[in-house]
Design a binder for these strands. Structure first.
Length: 479
RNA sequence: CGGGGCGUAGCGCAGCCUGGUUAGCGCGCUUGGUUCGGGACCAAGAGGUCGGAGGUUCAAAUCCUCUCGCCCCGACCA
């Protein structure tokens, strides 16, 4: 049988779905727009969770859990928030065989319930800050679902913090943005453009929204994570007040920030090739697959398997976890066994056969380059550690070079239109427009939206729409 | 919600226009054999109320009506 993945150049959507299918990552669920995350995909999510959760803990956050069902009246308390989320809320109207007095929303995000609880928990300046994170599922009834990128139900993490001062809340917003950037770059090997959202792209109810933007291998942008400075909007709506040192009542300043299973989609669309997924070693649940190869059962039992077990356990020890998979599917032929791991993105494959045993070597194959190395058994463990680091760095470097090659500049709307139509990718502009201008650009360019105003760049120039002085703004078509 | 397309075996499809024995093909699956270091081959099997309901007809996967569901492209969005 020939390859079962549509080439990326032929049909990107199909390619993406094929990789998910071939890698056994996820399926559509019986309910429209919902997905089933299969064990292979879920292991990736657990790995992502672990890395982010560690980073949250290091920055002083703790985990908690808030309810799935939110009274509709809660959502209505913040005007922009309800306007933004009402259209995509799933509502529970009946329970216990009766119609409910008040419909309950299946949480699309938890600012409201958490705000409600914070107002009870916070009395004094001594209660602040509150730094809580929640790992949970949310539901947004999207018009057009796409596995991992936009499913009706998805898994995510939402951090919600409350602070005594604006300055502290703003610091928190940017701190978590930086935490996101670091984990995404160092662990997921995703080059990230961090910046501020324009007015039209802001989170409903936020004062400022910051974002991590990544570029997929079809040059479209993907919003990989966001961090919001909510000002006192939710504190006002939910009465989150505290008494300061002087004895006066003040409203809190709150933040929220989130990443989701969408990151799995980002991994797929950044690193995969036409053979399947390629996982950066730091996030890969299985970093090394060990395949003893022989048709001789005696040789397998007496020589290869003991050796493979030995390699597996020393590797697990060296890697500090169960990251090595000993493949004993001997009912399959070698080619089939190779492709299983290839499609699932395992960074390194070790082949151990009689030839290798005689030569005192192990065949090591890199997933990212296909390069094959015969490594001396004595040097195996350190070589693998080194190779994993190399793969990690190489995947990041490759993606970053790709992003840079697909980033350009436009000074006028016509230039932007031409670039979006012909080249795609990120286009840097000067922009000072309103949400109406954003809509206009979107229509005129066939879908380009402002992705962000990059952080740490205070340069100014003439806005390509209004002619006023504008900030550097990156436009792109986004998922 | 607008525009397109599709429902036939676990998956992917052909057959439909022009109705006619027992509904086919590829992959996968089962069994046996030969293979086995980058997706094997041979042989024998299992597996279908042709999305659903109604109608036309001697006869419907095929024609007609209604209905349900799914996918793609837009608008909306992490």
């Amino acid at each position: 049988m020939a390859r079962n993945i549509t080439p990326r150049s032929t049909d990107y959507s199909q390619w993406y779905l094929d990789i998910i299918k071939a890698g056994e990552l996820a399926d559509y669920a019986p309910v429209r727009g919902c997905m089933v995350i299969r064990p292979t995909g879920y292991a990736i999510w657990e790995s992502i969770q672990r890395h982010f959760d560690d980073a949250f803990k290091r920055t002083g956050h703790v985990n908690a859990y808030f309810p799935l069902l939110i009274p509709n009246s809660f959502l209505e308390r913040e005007a922009e928030h309800v306007e933004g989320f009402a259209p995509e809320c799933a509502m529970v109207t009946h329970a216990g065989g009766e119609e409910l007095e008040e419909p309950l929303a299946v949480r699309p995000t938890s600012e409201t319930v958490i705000g409600h609880m914070y107002s009870k928990w916070i009395q004094s300046w001594r209660d602040l800050p509150i730094l809580i994170n929640q790992w949970c599922n949310v539901m947004r009834w999207e018009k057009r679902p796409r596995l991992f990128l936009r499913t009706s139900e998805f898994l995510w993490q939402e951090g919600h913090t409350a602070h005594a001062t604006e300055e502290e809340a703003r610091e928190e917003t940017l701190r978590m943005l930086e935490v996101y950037r670091q984990v995404m770059e160092d662990v997921l090997a995703l080059p990230i453009l961090v910046g501020e959202k324009t007015e039209g792209e802001r989170f409903p109810g936020a004062v400022d929204t910051y974002t991590c933007e990544a570029m997929m291998s079809d040059t479209r942008a993907l919003q990989a994570g966001t961090s919001h400075f909510l000002g006192q909007n939710f504190a006002r709506a939910f009465d989150i007040r505290f008494q300061n040192k002087e004895g006066d009542l003040e409203e809190c300043w709150t933040t929220s920030w989130g990443i989701s299973t969408r990151l799995i989609g980002a991994l797929i669309m950044t690193h995969s090739d036409d053979d399947g997924l390629i996982l950066p070693p730091h996030v890969a649940p299985v970093k090394v697959a060990v395949l003893p190869i022989s048709t001789d059962e005696q040789v397998l039992d007496d020589v290869l398997l003991p050796e493979a077990r030995d390699i597996t356990s020393s590797l697990n020890e060296a890697l500090g976890g169960l990251h090595t998979f000993l493949d004993t599917s001997f009912h399959l032929r070698p080619g089939d066994r190779f492709f299983t791991h290839l499609q699932k993105g395992v960074p390194l494959r070790l082949e151990l056969g009689e030839k290798d045993m005689k030569g005192g070597t192990v065949r090591v194959v890199r997933r990212d380059t296909g390069e094959k190395l015969d490594v001396a058994r004595d040097a195996l463990i350190p070589t693998i550690l080194k190779l994993l680091d190399e793969i990690q760095a190489s995947l990041y470097g490759r993606a970053k070079a790709f992003r840079e090659a697909n980033t350009s500049k436009a000074a006028t709307l016509d230039e932007l239109k031409a670039l979006i139509a012909e080249k795609g990718g990120f286009v840097e502009t000067w922009f000072a427009g309103t949400p109406d201008d954003e809509r206009r650009v979107r229509e005129e360019t066939g879908g380009a939206t402002p992705r962000c105003i990059p952080l740490g760049d205070d340069s100014r120039g003439t806005c390509f729409i209004t002619g006023r002085e504008g900030r550097k703004t990156v436009f792109a078509k986004a998922y």
